[in-house]
Nucleic acid binder design. Structure first.
Lengths: 207, 207
DNA sequence: CACCCGATGTCAGTAACTGTCATCACGTAA
DNA sequence: TTACGTGATGACAGTTACTGACATCGGGTG
């Protein structure tokens, strides 16, 4: 049992997301977040390094999960296949957080500073994945390029999942993005092989 | 002819890079930059939106050049080949700025806030390239994935160019990175086909 | 009961950034 | 030549993110 109200950190994160969503990130002061959480501004900065970080505390867990899965892939798996295992696991972890992820994503896409923070978190993820691949014997720059590709695939899959009108299976969307990525990298002219996917599949070739 | 000392904007950028390089980004105040440029803090913020942006005013030109080259590629070129033309042009544009690019890059890699800004500039570049590819008839998400891949290739090539002990041909390094990238995406197990490249090419396969 | 310790509150201070108005140096037209 | 317009700059007050130093609170431990 806490000596004060429990989970100050969680209350701050919840209050921040609410306020950012209600009135916008820039129109929200840290003092207001702290007040809604029943704390002071100074305490906010003891839990979070800055006003943005309160939206990104989960990034560490995401990265650890992704890395663990890649590291645990069979020794004979190619880099891109090891990364695919990590993508699957991450998609699973998001499964029951569709509504939360949507709200958070809307807040972030509405503000450039928050996008910057998200990008550096993804860059950190990419760097960790590259390091893991190197540990599996993959040379540079193959490791870094493969890691960046995996993050790009994740982003595409995530945004499709978030942007869908109803809740869908994120793992499936990510796998489709990976398949389309391989086609592009192989030098394909245009379009995906998933006309059943729905959106944006009218592959108009240039004549 | 300017009414005051000419090129206030350029003087601010030069002063900022000097000070960031000498004593670090965080240890430099905007007032100090302005003073070295013979101006006031308020004038700094009339030329640059914030303390970071002073290092990134060239990003617009880079993006325009890259996009122009991709848009001008032959109609029958595959996405990845169109992007390769843009990569070549950008590498050319950097040719005579090795020392400047090194200093600037060192400043940026030493500070997380500056890295965030750089990442969002690259994301903007990626978005512009994806839009250009869509204009060439490439469907989503192939366009976005190809664009992100091109930016990743550029980053690898640029960092190798900057990190080299002597000045080398950036265009060549970028082309090598592109070749290695294609191999990874195709599902290759390990290493590059350029053992002559030097650094990091001891491809240790997992046993 | 005395003490320790971690989480919080209080308060002063720095620096990034903004809004507002005054001022300056030049071009232009009477 | 002089008066006026205009765009760039200076001066100054104000908000807010963020930090350091110190006090306080409440529970556990000897």
């Amino acid at each position: 049992m806490g000596r004060w109200e429990p989970d100050a950190r969680g209350r701050l994160a919840a209050a921040a997301l609410q306020l950012y969503s209600e009135r916008g990130y820039e129109q929200t002061t840290v003092a207001e977040i702290a007040k809604r959480a029943g704390l002071t501004e100074r305490t906010f900065f003891r839990h979070y390094a800055d006003k943005r970080e309160v939206l990104f505390s989960g990034a560490v867990d995401l990265q650890e999960l992704f890395v663990r899965e890649v590291a645990g892939a069979p020794d004979n798996a190619a880099p891109i296949d090891a990364l695919a295992l990590g993508l699957d696991a991450v998609a699973e972890a998001f499964a029951d957080r569709w509504a939360y992820a949507r709200t958070r994503h809307a807040v972030i896409t509405a503000n450039a500073e928050l996008q910057e923070r998200e990008l550096i978190k993804l860059a950190s993820l990419s760097a960790a994945l590259a390091e893991t691949l190197r540990g599996r014997g993959v040379a540079e720059p193959a490791a870094s390029l493969a890691a960046e590709a995996a993050v790009a695939v994740f982003k595409v899959g995530f945004e499709r999942w978030i942007g869908a009108s109803e809740e869908r299976d994120m793992a499936q969307l990510v796998r489709e993005a990976l398949t389309e990525f391989k086609a592009v990298a192989a030098g394909g002219r245009c379009a995906p092989e998933h006309p059943r996917t729905g959106a944006g599949s009218q592959a108009s070739g240039t004549p």
